[in-house]
Simulated scan of single mutants.
Amino acid sequence: MAKDPQQENEGEIKQQQQVDTRIAAVRDLIFGENILQYNTEFADVYDKLKALENQTKSNLAESVSQLENKLADLESLMDHKFQDLSEDLDRRLADLDDEKADRRKLGKALEKIALMLQE
């Protein structure tokens, strides 16, 4: 009888697993302590990296928030200054208009005086 191809594959898989188990056993005998130490050290390094990443994200978010607040404050200050300057300019223009109006009144008054003197 011919063997079923599925049974042949299963046999090969079992044989490969036995070889892998033997290799793992030899590796553990030779490097067991070192591998455990390395794994522990790598786990510590990964934990520290994760903590630093979280801290960096937190610091970045805080910095962005502070910058946004400072920009909002600056915008408010600039609006206030612009409004003050605009009010000052309007006031000065009104003062100039008043001064011009006074000159006109003076001119008309002088004309009236000149007309009176001519009579």
Rank of each mutant, 00 (worst) to 15 (best):
D44E: 13
K108A: 04
N54S: 13
E10P: 00
Q17N: 10
E87H: 06
I23W: 03
L67Q: 08
Y38R: 14
D98M: 13
E75L: 09
L117Q: 12
E87K: 07
D88A: 12
Q18T: 09
D44P: 02
N59A: 09
L89W: 02
T56V: 11
S86R: 01
M1I: 09
E53W: 10
K105C: 14
N69E: 11
D95W: 00
K3D: 08
E75K: 13
S76F: 07
V64A: 04
D44T: 09
A94E: 07
F82R: 12
A101D: 15
Q66S: 03
E75H: 10
T56A: 14
L117P: 02
K3M: 13
N39I: 05
V64G: 00
S58V: 11
N39H: 08
T56I: 12
D95P: 00
Q37I: 07
T21N: 13
N34D: 12
V19K: 11
A94W: 04
R92A: 02
G32H: 01
T40S: 15
A109V: 12
I30E: 02
A51E: 06
E99Y: 05
R104K: 14
Q55H: 05
D79F: 04
I30A: 02
T21H: 09
D84S: 06
K70T: 13
E12A: 03
Y38M: 13
S65Y: 02
K50E: 07
G107I: 14
Q15N: 14
L49H: 06
E99H: 05
Q66F: 01
K105G: 13
D4E: 09
R104F: 13
E75D: 14
L115M: 09
E41Q: 03
E68F: 01
D97Y: 02
R104H: 13
R104W: 11
